[in-house]
Design a protein around this nucleic acid. Structure first.
Lengths: 335, 335
DNA sequence: CTGTTAGCGCTTTCAT
DNA sequence: ATGAAAGCGCTAACAG
């Protein structure tokens, strides 16, 4: 809770809502027993600083969790902000998809996080890439409130808005079992991602609830792209004893599965196509070439709930409430 | 080229690459003959400033094209940056669609533009909402280089990366004509958007090239959402003499058209379903429930080309080259 | 109502 | 190799 500052830590007095004042070069300088200028030099690469001193300052910087104030920095004449504004009319349009993003890249996430803090953001909403908790610890975030959206990270004591992954997967699999299916495949994304783990948990629970074992040969993990899940589906269909039903753990995976299934359907005239339950909806789910059930939820509500929780932290109205995890409901739609 | 500053304009001397130094409150104060504080007060709402003086200052601000430096502003203690960092793993995933964006909103565009400039962005890549050129004029942008992507705005002398809308529409319609279609409908988005106009131009050209007239009853404009184009399609199909072919001017429109057509196909068993050519591709285009041809292009290349042009402006390597419009090729894919 | 002073966090310049 | 001073653009706080 308290910022991890050293003894006689600077600027940590009661500041209204309780968020500590930002740590500055001056603070670092005082703690390290040097001048602000030396700190600045260390921060800019350590040229012209005695190695021992440099290391000392670096240690203090790391301990205190300092983030350079990029706004102040960009005030200096001649300095480049490094910012480029990009405006597109509508993120919702998949058309803008390929224009430029780095996919599920943990290093980029850490870097971006640091940059955001340096630019004095007051709050963060993050769909985390992986399972590295360190970067999300309060002391690393300079007290900036964080809401994890859609996915959690174990060991991070922040607010989170999730969807009810476990129940969604559980209910979907239960329905397949009700329909008589016994060989049900699970196609999932990276195990490091909480949604993947939670959805698998729901999958397992539904089977175990009825005393059925999970066939590990029908559980595939680590599918990041549609192409991978299409290939995985093809492999499953080629088994001697192929699955009669498939659970696709997210919509990127579903796209690949549908590709494979529609080709099978075209060849077989629709015979022998596995039953498909897909987590998350997508355009044209209602026009899928094969029967399809979707475990859906309201993404707008996800955004809204995240914003609400963040705002409550920002305006202080949630100051004394411990970290809260909300799970949004899912519903199953049959197409 | 030269910033539209008044007589004896401040800080406009040769500054290396030619981008003028930013206009500051001091500059405004000097030109207006008041103190910086008065300017600051005017900028913050004009409380405690004599009305006449306030108006005078406001006029100077408007003329010079001043943008408040939000970075300097956020340096003051107690000031809130107003920034919230949002990180998602992958914009390309349509799942994040609904999380939070304002769609095709011109006012938001202007506001965002101003905010970007205030935050000292060094360059801009914009997919413009409408046809208002003013906000994109160089003097309004404080000399910050701009690249328009995908759409242009008439009267804006900036770099632009477009796709070959005219040729794409022309070739698509020509193919439909080759197939023997004579009643071809055009479903388009807002007329204020250049892509809509350009694609209609290609549509017209293809018909006129063969001495055929455009039937205005088959031309629909202003379709912003899939629901609207679905309804428009239904209306067209209900005509006494319905179109035998449809040109859908973008992918949101295509979604609606496909919905209407797939329902028709389900009822009729596939008979009497119009031929469809759709501009822009989308997930599952290859699995459409009815025959479909797509006028496609590479969105990644659009992003890359935009970035390239902007960087050339930023590093000065394009300093003496006039504004350039690039048109990326399109290709037609039959599914 | 208007102006002056001071200082936010940082780094460039100029001593030491 | 280190530090002191100064100032980037802006605006509270305090004169006037």
């Amino acid at each position: 809770m308290a910022p991890a500052a050293g003894s006689g830590s600077p600027g940590t007095g009661p500041t209204g809502t309780g968020r500590g004042a930002a740590v500055t070069v001056k603070d670092i300088a005082r703690v390290a027993g040097v001048s602000p200028m030396t700190v600045s030099r260390v921060l800019s690469g350590g040229k012209n600083v005695r190695p021992a001193l440099r290391e000392h300052v670096e240690r203090v910087v790391a301990e205190v969790g300092y983030h350079r104030n990029e706004n102040a920095r960009s005030l200096r004449p001649g300095h480049r902000s490094g910012l480029v504004g990009v405006m597109i009319t509508n993120i919702a349009n998949p058309y803008y998809a390929g224009v430029g993003t780095t996919n599920e890249d943990g290093d980029l996430e850490r870097q971006l996080l640091s940059d955001f803090l340096g630019r004095q953001v007051e709050g963060l909403v993050v769909v985390p890439v992986g399972s590295d908790a360190d970067r999300f610890l309060p002391e690393r975030l300079a007290g900036v409130p964080l809401v994890l959206a859609s996915r959690t990270v174990e060991g991070v004591p922040s607010d989170a808005v999730l969807i009810d992954d476990v129940r969604g997967a559980h209910d979907a699999v239960s329905q397949m079992l009700d329909e008589g299916h016994r060989r049900i495949a699970f196609l999932g994304n990276a195990v490091t991602v909480s949604t993947g783990r939670r959805r698998l948990a729901g999958f397992r629970a539904a089977l175990e609830e009825r005393g059925l074992a999970v066939d590990d040969g029908l559980v595939v993990f680590g599918l990041q792209e549609a192409a991978a899940s299409e290939a995985a589906t093809r492999d499953l269909l080629a088994l001697d004893d192929p699955p009669t039903a498939i659970f696709a753990a997210n919509n990127r995976i579903s796209v690949g599965v549908l590709r494979a299934l529609s080709q099978l359907a075209a060849r077989s005239g629709g015979a022998g196509v596995p039953r498909l339950f897909a987590f998350d909806s997508f355009d044209f789910a209602d026009m899928a070439p094969v029967p399809l059930s979707v475990i859906d939820h309201d993404p707008v509500e996800l955004g809204r709930a995240s914003a609400r929780m963040l705002l409550a932290r920002l305006d202080g109205s949630a100051d004394d409430r411990p970290a809260q995890v909300v799970e949004l409901p899912v519903h199953i739609v049959h197409h």
